[in-house]
Amino acid sequence: MILSVNNIHKSYGKEEVLKGISFDINNSEIVALVGPNGSGKSTLLNIINNLLPANNGKFNILGGSNKDPEVFRKISFMQDNTVLYDYLTGYDHLQFIGDLQGITKKHIFETAERIGIDGYLNKKVGHYSLGMKQHLLLAMALINQPKLMILDEPLNGLDPTSAIKVREILLELAEQGTAILLSSHNLAEIDKVTSNILFLKNGVLIHEDLSAHKQVWYEIKVMDVEIGIYFK
């Protein structure tokens, strides 16, 4: 068992945001958590990573508790870019994690090159574009070679070429034995990397295996002429 989430409840005042969330990740697979902005995706990920308390529920992460610091040597959590410091360089961010995790300078540069941020690694983050920040966040999540990666909107702000590269990296990681839980508000962004989708709606999860759907209907409208394309 890589991750087991059991009956998680979370309320803010009288508003119940999460209503008994349960799911398991058993293998090195990519699982997507999909829902509209404000649906509670980030809240759930923060609770799993012990950054927010749940009102009720239990976790098992790689055989341990999400309150055990040692567990976080084996997992990583990619948050949004508000965790970055504008006055530090990309290398400073990676070196900080490296010092905590006992990671060599050589591995830091190898990770930066793999993600494609080596060209601006010594630039201050305050001068990064949104896409550059997303790449740095991914490098920070990857650098400790985790058994489980939890990624909050990893494709946000990426141009099509960069998004394709990130998807390729995620697929490669899954093939190498890393389990990945990622969130997105856009199903089209992640349908190329996983068929295991958890839809979060009104505080509950709807499990959906997209591989069960054999048929897809696309409709293209050009100059008021509609063309239907049918795939099976």
Rank of each mutant, 00 (worst) to 15 (best):
L45R: 05
G38M: 05
K221A: 07
L148E: 08
N49E: 09
T82H: 08
V5Q: 12
V204H: 09
I47R: 04
S195A: 04
Y12F: 15
L138W: 04
H213S: 03
V204Y: 09
K14W: 05
I8R: 02
A32W: 05
N66G: 14
L62M: 06
F59M: 10
K67D: 10
L155A: 00
E153A: 01
N81G: 00
D191I: 07
N50Y: 13
H107K: 12
V204M: 14
S76M: 03
H185L: 06
L18P: 05
L18Q: 12
G126N: 06
L84R: 12
T104H: 09
D224H: 12
N202R: 11
K41W: 11
I97W: 12
T82D: 11
V17F: 10
Q95K: 15
N56W: 04
F59I: 10
L187E: 10
E15D: 09
S162I: 04
I108P: 01
G90L: 00
R114W: 12
K14G: 07
K123H: 07
E226V: 02
L51M: 14
V125M: 09
K123D: 11
G157K: 02
S162R: 06
R73V: 01
S11Y: 03
L151Q: 11
T178Y: 00
M223I: 08
I8N: 09
K14V: 02
W217L: 14
D191Y: 07
N26Q: 15
Y128A: 01
H107E: 15
K67R: 12
L138D: 02
Q101E: 14
Q79R: 11
K214W: 00
H207T: 04
E16K: 13
G116Q: 05
I75S: 01
P146V: 03
D209E: 15
G63H: 07
E208F: 13
G119R: 07
L100S: 09
N55S: 07
L136S: 06
V71E: 02
M78G: 00
I25N: 13
N81A: 02
V222W: 01
L88K: 13
I229D: 10
I169L: 15
H9G: 00
Y128V: 05
V204Q: 14
L151I: 14
K67N: 06
T111I: 15
Q176H: 02
L181D: 07
L187R: 05
W217P: 00
L100Q: 15
F199C: 10
L52D: 13
G203W: 14
G157A: 05
E113W: 00
N122L: 08
L33A: 08
L52G: 11
V31D: 13
I115V: 15
N144S: 13
K105Q: 10
Y85P: 00
W217D: 12
I164S: 05
L136K: 04
F231E: 15
K67Y: 10
K67T: 11
